[in-house]
Write a protein that binds this DNA or RNA. Structure first.
Lengths: 315, 315
DNA sequence: TCGTATATACTCCAATTGAGCATAAGATGA
DNA sequence: TCATCTTATGCTCAATTGGAGTATATACGA
């Protein structure tokens, strides 16, 4: 790009880090929040940090007292819309996805960790598709599609809806978290930001909102993670040092929002040699004691990519 | 993050956009460069742009006279090392990958477009593994691995090398572009930046360098694209409106740096209904005339993700 | 001791995928 | 004119993968 006349003078830009921090406890996928669940943790990028990721990592470990296993950049925004207050100041927001373990004190959930399905109740299909979808979302989305001008646009809208929500023959794809959220937002079925209300004056559907575009960023993080667990062994960052295969499975299911076939799951994990037995067993599972496993960290060196394909149940 | 004492005062940060622009012409994968091939196009983020992507898109279309089909963010850097000159000014670099068609004037290649294998000659395996790897890279990498202190570290280094370059039983994975580049850099076999020279005083191996970390960014873009073409129909952004299946195949091969099985490639493309016949045929192919196809843009609406799995030839 | 709940081992079948053979339809040059 | 070259295109086959079910093992508690 050529040096432009309108280039921002030094002093016009600030940088912000926003974190989607994920943990899974007892089958509940959690995200760390602040302000009573209304926002994601964020703060200015500090000069003392050697790099963006270094800064994020140091800060998170200080807050959660757990090593931050996996960190990945999500997206960098600088939309003009985001600069709400002072128009002169341009803010660049750099969002991250991080995996860790929940900091529990004596089994009590620490404040700040929230089940992410509180924000996206339509995303949890572990016990089948939530009735919410058929009862509330689909009718409203159909209304919205019908309200478009022109048959082509109406059809186009409805096709997007059907595709995103797995209607009319297409099957539910758990990775389309962001597409679904954006459709709901576009159709004014969910609000973006707090206290904005909806255009048509209709009540919003279940699901907590968040300040500014934080719920959208959370959706981005969930989508990325749901895609990632299928080809990278990142789930283990969320596990305790020793775990049973069922615990591992439940963690995956919590993230994916759908069930997996138990036997195939075990087959896959074992044939990929992702884990090794510790020798001990867990007897508090209510049935036959399960062998305890640990992650084989060697696989990270062996194949940086090969991956954990997950046998998600087909539609 | 809590408001820190060391927070950067307004005025300390600047933002830069860096673009990896890709086109494919006659089986040659091209990247747009400036400064006689020594740098990637980049420039300050301008206030006039509504968002980062909007700015990039407008600028590119102005330069190439072609619509910029697919745009994707690569990565945002703010490493302290990057601020070379003034230590006070912190620069955030936001890099993008963009797909377009080469702007050709009467079949003459426009200045600036360079074959990306000029920078990464070890990445082109279309006619088999380049002899360069066995003759130069492998011995030097082995040397480097041997030079480590401690048997564990030596073994670890060599395992990384073997994995990245497909030695000792593991097979070549075209997606590990960045890992390979970083290994070569870590082993001081390729320089980073221009005119820096190498520590040991040994001559660098073939492959052009680029200013600052631009070659690394290009590697990131190539890696991302090689991964992407396998599950998203983005190759079509690089094609002319009408093309033969062989042309499409050659484009994929140029990007992936390896050959695909022709019949299986056709099977995959057709069964996914990614293309439709235009009715015309191309007779300048030297053999039996080939049917011309066009991309079915409808698939973008139908399945935003399903993908173009590519039958890359197995090792 | 029986029911219940989980763990774990195997089997089966269908879809996918890698690889090769065979034939078709043009161009070219002897 | 015809043999030959080149690319296009259709079809087969076997190996692997992946989804789903059955059967057996081992604990606990009523």
């Amino acid at each position: 790009m050529k040096p432009a006349a309108k280039a921002i003078p030094a002093g016009g830009i600030a940088a912000d880090l926003i974190a989607v921090l994920v943990a899974v406890t007892n089958g509940a996928p959690l995200a760390l929040t602040i302000q009573d669940g209304n926002a994601l943790p964020s703060g200015p990028f500090e000069l003392g940090h050697r790099s963006l990721q270094t800064g994020l990592r140091a800060w998170v470990e200080e807050q959660t007292h757990h090593p931050l296993g996996y960190v990945e950049q999500l997206y960098t925004f600088a939309d003009r819309d985001r600069a709400e207050s002072e128009a002169a100041q341009r803010v660049i927001s750099i969002s991250y996805l991080g995996l860790t373990r929940e900091a529990q004190r004596d089994g009590v959930r620490e404040a700040g960790w929230r089940d992410w399905y509180d924000y996206f109740p339509w995303e949890d299909h572990r016990t089948g598709a939530p009735s919410l979808i058929a009862d509330l979302l689909t009718p409203r989305l159909r209304e919205w599609a019908q309200a478009a001008g022109g048959a082509g646009l109406r059809e186009e809208r409805w096709r997007r809806v059907a595709f995103a929500f797995g209607l009319e023959g297409s099957s539910w794809n758990e990775e389309f978290v962001l597409q679904r959220y954006e459709l709901l937002y576009e159709a004014a079925i969910v609000p973006e930001g707090l206290g904005e209300g909806l255009a048509g004056g209709r009540s919003p559907v279940p699901g907590r909102a968040m300040a500014a575009d934080h719920r959208r960023i959370l959706a981005t993080g969930i989508a990325r993670l749901r895609a990632k667990i299928k080809y990278r062994p990142v789930v283990f960052e969320l596990m305790q040092p020793a775990f049973t295969l069922l615990q591992l499975q439940r963690t995956v299911e919590a993230l994916a929002g759908r069930l997996v076939h138990k036997q195939n799951f075990r087959r896959l994990i074992e044939q990929q040699e992702l884990v090794e037995e510790t020798g001990a067993t867990a007897s508090d599972t209510g049935g036959r004691p399960a062998k305890l496993f640990r992650f084989r960290y060697a696989v990270l060196a062996e194949r940086a990519a090969a991956g954990t394909k997950l046998p998600l149940i087909r539609a």
